[in-house]
Amino acid sequence: MAGFADLNVPQGPDKKCLQSLLEAAAHLGYSAVALNHVIDFKEKKQEIVKPVSPSELFPSLPIVQGTSKRIKVLTRLTLVVSDPSHCNLLRSTSANIRLYDIIAVFPKTEKLFHIACTTLDVDLVCINVTEKLPFYFRRPPVNMAIDRGIYFELLYTPAIKDSTMRRYTISNAISLMQICKGKNVVISSAAERPLELRGPYDVANLGLLFGLSESEAKAAVSTNCRAAVLHGETRKSACGVVYTVKKPRKVEEEETALPACKKAKTQA
């Protein structure tokens, strides 16, 4: 089984807070975290910024407890969509979107959920856990999502904070499990403070309350996260097989190469 991952650490403006979150995650034994950048289309015009590269943010990443490796930091973009027109952004080949490792959508209506599961090129579909579901899950889109390798994300921090939200979290999770049968589920934190993070084995245990079996619950924090990240990686490659990387070219070479090229053209 792959290492544990938490695919949702909100990327706030406070760098110190983020650093302490990363340290807490590494101490708990997560070997990968994804910094989440949320874009809500309801609020004015929002620009999709380039992801901040983790190496820029943190010069030295904390070491995962019990191993000698450093924690892996990924970037993630979450789009909160409440209108079908918002999805156009995902269809267009926006350069900035492609730079993110993981792309998630948070559909607000049943129609959008259907679109997200069946047609959009995303890795994660967020499930609302803070209020009563505005719609029922239906089998066709969920099955389609499972076939396409899209994962459903459940958050556990709201359940820690508040008892009403806990009720919604559990009931929404169970209604999802009745349809997806425990397949393709990812559990992540969305923790804003280090105290809200929980260890991976504890999260897997919480998964039992969501109606997952023991092995499914453990997969929800390890194997499924790995699969979601790999699904995101295929977006950057051709058919998930071929990568194209820009070859770093030296300045001097370019200078000498250019005239030769011109010459060849005129001759032809």
Partner: peptide, 8 residues
């Protein structure tokens, strides 16, 4: 030593 059977 220090390798986890479920991860490494």
């Amino acid at each position: 030593y220090n390798t986890k059977i479920d991860q490494d």
